[in-house]
Write a protein that binds this DNA or RNA. Structure first.
Lengths: 148, 148
DNA sequence: ACAAGTATGCACCTTTTGGTAAGTACCCAA
DNA sequence: TTGGGTACTTACCAAAAGGTGCATACTTGT
């Protein structure tokens, strides 16, 4: 309760050594990460990219089954956007039972590689992540009360 | 036709060499990437993490100004979630003009590092990305019917 | 003939997300 | 006294994202 606030000089953070600089802003992007995020925005895009980066060209149906829980509408939509953005290439064999497959362009492939560390992170910390999510769900489910 | 209709054997993809394996599924995650994505889902989270990873502990206001275009509500909300998920640490100095700063936990810091390649990718390909986005906007703008 | 599979398109609707604007409690400078 | 700054909170609302389900056009298997 005593008012001895005279700039306590916060300790200069022993944790969190700086990571790397980020060339800031070309068009309307805050930084490179910002640019990337806009491209991979969408619930399924990173998964699609990563999946394609692993398995090479894949038929629509295979992708559909691989990316669990995705609906046709969503998968098609995201693939279209990825295609428009020059990350995936669509090949339509014009066959009679439709046959189409998707593969990564070089650009897409490089993005796929940039996703690898994220995947590794998730794999390494999956235990923590899933614990955290369990709590989050409990919290969401129970808490409909005014802020406790 | 009746005998070997099983596999037309499409050409085995000269492009896209496989990238890496992804330890699949522990709790309800498709793969590590899936797990990661759930943690960093949210328009501003990756930016926040990355920003904190670069500059160390940061006061709320600084963050606010650094992450362009974010509103108070959003920034606070995402910070809260990141905190709940054990990625950032909030320090409230309990001072009279409020003073609070945010820093990364070790977990958060490791994630921040995993974001580096994405940032680099964006930086490297920013030209392509911005071109693509220009087209996307034109496309969006023109195709708009009076939905108002 | 009929169901199933293939790769999509489309309409409709709900959920989630995010933005705006206002308010709180307190201080300092003009 | 007014205005600005700090770090939030809350209510309300618009927009985006995403899901369901039906339709297509054609083939193959039963």
């Amino acid at each position: 309760m005593s008012s001895d606030r005279s700039n306590p000089l916060p300790p200069p953070a022993p944790t969190s050594p700086p990571v790397q600089s980020c060339t800031p802003t070309l068009p309307g992007f805050t930084c490179g990460l910002d640019a990337t995020l806009r491209v991979i925005a969408g619930k399924w895009k990173p998964l699609i990219l990563y999946f394609l980066a692993q398995g090479g060209p894949t038929r629509y149906g295979e992708l559909r089954r691989a990316v669990r829980d995705v609906s046709d509408k969503m998968l098609i939509q995201q693939l279209k956007e990825l295609e428009a953005d020059g990350l995936v290439k669509r090949t339509d064999y014009k066959e009679v039972p439709p046959r189409v497959d998707y593969s990564l362009t070089p650009l897409g492939h490089s993005l796929g590689e940039a996703l690898v560390p994220l995947c590794s992170w998730g794999t390494e910390h999956m235990a923590e992540v899933s614990r955290v999510f369990a709590e989050r769900e409990a919290w969401t489910r129970r808490g409909r009360q005014p802020t406790v």
